[in-house]
């Protein structure tokens, strides 16, 4: 279990990656998979609140993050994404009880899978954002964008810079 805790899908605070400089001129493409009941509603709220967040994210809505399969994440990378994050309800607050906890386990697995093909596991992350947390949605989008800017383009995508 110790190994598992090390790779837990919460971003460390402070994030050691942030000590690096962002790759100049690189605008990442990040896929956000948000659940209908919380994070997608939070995205809506962020919009209603006129909050600004990076334009780098592309949101895909799922009924629950428990619907997210590791294959969705691999396909996103295969098609050129530089980062993928899954945003579900807060732990204990999932509309379907534990879908977000299943998603968390799968994110851990997806990190291993992309590591095997030579991508950094930090390109995949899991976040929990409540429906009322519009500002947190904007914050997470900014955080993930900054992270991926520091990781640089996905190694299969170098041409994009």
């Amino acid at each position: 279990m110790a190994e598992r805790a090390d790779l837990m899908s919460t971003v460390p605070d402070p994030d050691p990656l942030m000590e690096k400089e962002p790759v100049p001129g690189f605008e990442p493409l990040i896929v956000t998979i948000a659940c209908h009941y919380c994070s997608y509603a939070a995205a809506d709220l962020a919009g209603s609140m006129r909050l600004q967040y990076p334009h780098n994210i592309r949101i895909i809505r799922t009924p629950c993050t428990g619907k997210v399969d590791v294959l969705y994440i691999l396909k996103a990378f295969e098609e050129g994404a530089d980062g993928v994050y899954v945003a579900g309800c807060e732990e204990g607050g999932c509309h379907f009880d534990i879908g977000n906890l299943y998603a968390k386990q799968r994110i851990y697995y997806a990190k291993k899978l992309i590591q095997q093909v030579g991508l950094e596991p930090e390109r995949v992350e899991m976040f929990n954002i409540a429906a009322s947390a519009g500002p947190r949605f904007a914050e997470v989008a900014a955080l993930m964008t900054e992270r991926v800017k520091r990781l640089g383009p996905s190694p299969i995508n170098i041409k994009r810079i």
Partner: peptide
């Protein structure tokens, strides 16, 4: 079939890389 998808995707990403 799910593992076929995952492994194939990994092989494609690794080859592209």
């Amino acid at each position: 079939s799910k593992e076929v998808g995952i492994l194939s995707s990994q092989l494609r990403i690794a080859a592209k890389k």
